[in-house]
């Protein structure tokens, strides 16, 4: 009996070491070698390895394998894999599936935040409730999202939300705006512009520069005069990036925005 326990402990130890080796390789960016080690572990049913193998496949652009391994680990109850599968589905615009897997991983603060983001579309009051828990525990994105959302007159939690958001509105506006600007797959220029507006109105230079860049990104040269206005305002407040952006518009601009001499002076 004791002999079997020793054998079991030894093989578990071996699996942990193998996982650690593949993890180190993944962190170093050696995806091929990492995948080689993870493959055997994943086929033995190690959910940690299955989750990491899905990520290795994701960064190797093998999407069906990514989904397969996330799903295998998530159905066996791995919370991180369930969360990842939720994100993966969200990236593929499969919102229903995303919601399903996020609910399964709901114990994790990250999943609560993700559920908040999902509910902002159709149930903002519920979204706020989801943002609140991770926000209290220090998740800055959740706090920012909670604070940029309007208060609902019948919401009994308004007082605790207001207490948490006191003095944080401007930063919340900037953080949420940035969140929707990057990375690409979550991005929505209009959403980012909407959330940034408060910080812009408060005179936040970083927000003004980002706002100008987004206006230019959205409509290109047809909105360059508007973008330039925000760049100049931010540059006046000492934002160097905005100065460069304004200078460049002075160079490549059309009609009255073309003032190369001024652009050169600013550069």
């Amino acid at each position: 009996m004791l002999r079997w326990i020793y054998i079991l402990m030894f093989s578990m130890n071996l699996m942990a070491t193998e996982y650690c080796d593949s993890y180190t390789l993944y962190e170093k960016g050696d995806l091929i070698e990492s995948k080689r080690l993870l493959d055997s572990l994943a086929f033995k049913g190690d959910t940690k390895a299955q989750n990491l193998l899905a990520l290795v496949n994701f960064y190797s652009s093998k999407m069906s394998a990514t989904q397969k391994w996330f799903q295998r680990a998530a159905t066996k109850g791995d919370l991180k894999a369930a969360y990842n599968l939720g994100i993966y589905n969200y990236m593929n615009a499969n919102i229903k599936q995303s919601e399903k897997w996020m609910h399964k991983a709901e114990v994790l603060n990250e999943a609560k935040f993700a559920l908040g983001v999902l509910f902002t579309r159709n149930n903002p009051q519920k979204a706020k409730a989801y943002f609140y828990l991770p926000a209290v525990e220090g998740n800055l994105f959740a706090k920012a999202h909670l604070c940029v959302m309007p208060n609902f007159s019948k919401d009994s939690n308004n007082a605790k939300y207001q207490k948490l958001c006191q003095g944080f509105q401007e930063q919340a506006s900037l953080i949420t705006g940035k969140f929707y600007d990057t990375p690409k797959q979550y991005g929505s220029i209009n959403k980012a512009l909407y959330y940034l507006k408060y910080a812009v109105d408060q005179g936040n230079a970083e927000a003004m520069n980002l706002y100008g860049s987004l206006l230019y990104k959205r409509r290109g040269q047809s909105d360059e005069a508007n973008a330039l206005l925000y760049f100049l305002k931010a540059a006046d407040k000492g934002n160097v990036e905005a100065k460069v952006n304004a200078a460049w518009i002075y160079y490549v601009g059309q009609k009255w925005t073309r003032k190369p001499a001024l652009g050169y002076k600013m550069l």
Binding site: C20, K48, F58, Y83, N84, L108
Partner: peptide, 14 residues
């Protein structure tokens, strides 16, 4: 950049 992107995914460390 990729690491920043990967921040959205969760996985176990050693």
């Amino acid at each position: 950049e990729e690491k920043k992107r990967a921040m959205h995914f969760l996985y176990d460390g050693c």
